[in-house]
Design a protein around this nucleic acid. Structure first.
Lengths: 139, 139
DNA sequence: GTAACTGCAAAATATTTGCATCCTT
DNA sequence: AAGGATGCAAATATTTTGCAGTTAC
C-alpha cells in the first residue's frame, strides 16, 4: 500500500501534517470526497483555507482529480499512478450511488469514444453514471 | 420557432416578465447558461433571488436541465421537447469548448452505454466532452 | 379576489486574499 | 537560514429564507 508521505515526496511536495492527513483520507476512502467531507473527517483540525489550498495543490500535481457534479460542489477523487502534473488520465467512469450517495471512481471502465458532429475536436471526456452501487443494489 | 410564452403555458406556469425573458435567453442561446450568465444578459433587471427561483422552477418542470461541471457552478441547458416534469431525457452529450468556453448540448449524440463491474445498476448517465467546437477548431 | 410570484432584507454558507508566524528541508 | 505552508482576519461571493407588496389569472 502506497503511503501518503511517499506520494507527497514523489510529487515534490513538502510533508506536512495537513497534507499527510488529507491525502491519507483519499487513500483510505472508497469514494470521492468533497471539501466539506474532508472538513468533517478531519474534525476541522485544519483551517478551512488550508483545506482549499491543499486540494488545489493536489489537483495541480495530479494526485487527485475533479469530478463533475450537477450540484454546485466539486468532488475530488484519487488519481491512478499514471497521472502526472498537469496531465490527468482521468478518463474513467465515475459512478454516483443514489442510495449511499458515494461517488466511486471506476478506474477500469474507460469512457467510450462518441462520434461528434462534423468539426468538433474532442480532447478529453468525462462520464458520470448514476444508479445503485454493488453494496446498495436490490438483488 | 417555439415562443417562450407557449412553453410556459404548456408547463402550467404563469407568464411573468422574468420567466419570459429568462426562457427567451435559453431559446436564443446556442450554449448552456449559468446563473451569472443570466444576470449579465438581463443586465440584472431581476432580483438575484428571482433568477434562482426561476431556474429551479424550470428544472422542476423539465424545461431546462443541469449540466455537470468541475468548477463549482451549475450550468443549465434547454431541454428537448421530449422532456417532462421530473423525467429528464438529458442523456445527450455535452460539449465544452476550450477556446470560446461555450457549453453546447449535442442533442443528437446520446451517451453510450458502458459495461459496469458486476453488481452496479446504472439508471442514468451524463457525459461531458471537452475540446474545440466547430467554430473554434483549428483547421 | 386569490394564489402565486417578485423584490427586499438579512441570514447562512462558501471562497478568496493578505499577512504574520511557524515549519520543513 | 530560507522558502514555503499554515492560521487568522477580513473581504468577497454565493445561496437560502422570510415576509410584505404586487401581479397573473
Amino acid at each position: 500500500m502506497l503511503h501518503s508521505s511517499d506520494l507527497l515526496k514523489k510529487n515534490g511536495l513538502s510533508i506536512t501534517e495537513s497534507r499527510k492527513q488529507i491525502l491519507e483520507l483519499f487513500l483510505l476512502s472508497d469514494g470521492a470526497l468533497s471539501h466539506s467531507d474532508i472538513e468533517k473527517k478531519t474534525s476541522a483540525a485544519f483551517d478551512r483555507v488550508t483545506v482549499y489550498r491543499t486540494l488545489q495543490t493536489f489537483v495541480e500535481k495530479g494526485i487527485i482529480h475533479q469530478i463533475p457534479t450537477t450540484d454546485n460542489s466539486i468532488l475530488y477523487g484519487l488519481c491512478k499512478d499514471s497521472c502526472e502534473a498537469g496531465h490527468h488520465h482521468d478518463e474513467h467512469v465515475h459512478f454516483l450511488c443514489n442510495s449511499c450517495n458515494k461517488t466511486i471512481c471506476l478506474d477500469d471502465v474507460t469512457v467510450p469514444h462518441v462520434k461528434l458532429p462534423n468539426g468538433f475536436k474532442p480532447l478529453q471526456s468525462a462520464m458520470v453514471v448514476k444508479g445503485f452501487c454493488d453494496d446498495c443494489k436490490v438483488s
